[in-house]
């Protein structure tokens, strides 16, 4: 069981390492979307600070959708998804492993980029730390819930766009708590409440999403 999970994760990391261009796209998309905002709304530091949490979080949601579209699509196309589904190991573990691998490839680098972008948005150090903490707790939610959408839209025409329609509404709590944490600390109210709620949401996603993703994969491959 453990070996299966590790194989799934290691396999995806290996594939990502062989194709660096693929996953860097999502990171650069994140950076670019965030950088567009000062150009659009003006460079007043006060204003930037106010919108920073929301902008970074919305950009993270969009970037995750960009990378999730391919989470299962490539494996579906070359037939390896079928092989994975036929494994004697439970499909839930496959879904969990894929989500973990996606987070390592997509979410983790985001945590490293976010402080730099936070500085561009004139965030104080304290708020940057909370921003990183909120992304650390919140981005796994994006990988987990997004996996459901990726599995449901497998092999459909316009799957990527459809994925956005299905999954963005489900992301709402993560966005509110995540961006709210940054706002909370800026307003001097602390961010513990938001971060704990975000943590609870993450825990729930972790419990439910792999099962639903597994069921969705079975439905989509049938």
């Amino acid at each position: 069981m453990w070996r299966f999970l590790m194989t799934v994760i290691r396999r995806d990391l290996l594939l990502a390492a062989r194709r660096k261009g693929d996953w860097l796209t999502a990171q650069f998309f994140f950076i670019m979307v965030v950088s567009m905002f000062p150009l659009g709304i003006g460079a007043d530091p006060e204003q930037l600070r106010r919108v920073a949490g929301g902008v970074l979080w919305v950009a993270a949601l969009l970037a995750s959708l960009l990378s999730l579209a391919r989470l299962y699509a490539d494996d579906h196309r070359d037939g390896s998804l079928e092989q994975m589904l036929l494994s004697p190991q439970p499909t839930v573990l496959l879904a969990l492993g894929k989500a973990i691998a996606h987070w390592l490839i997509f979410g983790l680098p985001l945590l490293l980029i976010a402080p730099l972008l936070g500085m561009q948005f004139a965030l104080p150090l304290e708020a940057i730390l909370v921003l990183v903490a909120s992304l650390a707790i919140g981005t796994p939610v994006l990988s987990l819930l997004g996996g459901i959408g990726a599995a449901l839209t497998l092999g459909l025409r316009g799957g990527g766009t459809l994925l956005t329609l299905l999954i963005l509404p489900l992301y709402v709590p993560a966005l509110i708590f995540g961006a709210g944490a940054v706002d909370g600390v800026l307003a001097g109210m602390g961010a513990e409440a938001q971060l704990s709620l975000l943590g609870a949401f993450m825990g729930m996603s972790l419990l439910i999403a792999p099962w639903v993703t597994a069921a969705a994969l079975r439905v989509s491959v049938d």
């Binding site: 290996l14 594939l15 062989r18 196309r77 070359d78």
Partner: peptide, 8 residues
């Protein structure tokens, strides 16, 4: 489909 990954 062979289930063979192109990059491996």
């Amino acid at each position: 489909a062979n289930g063979v990954k192109d990059d491996l």
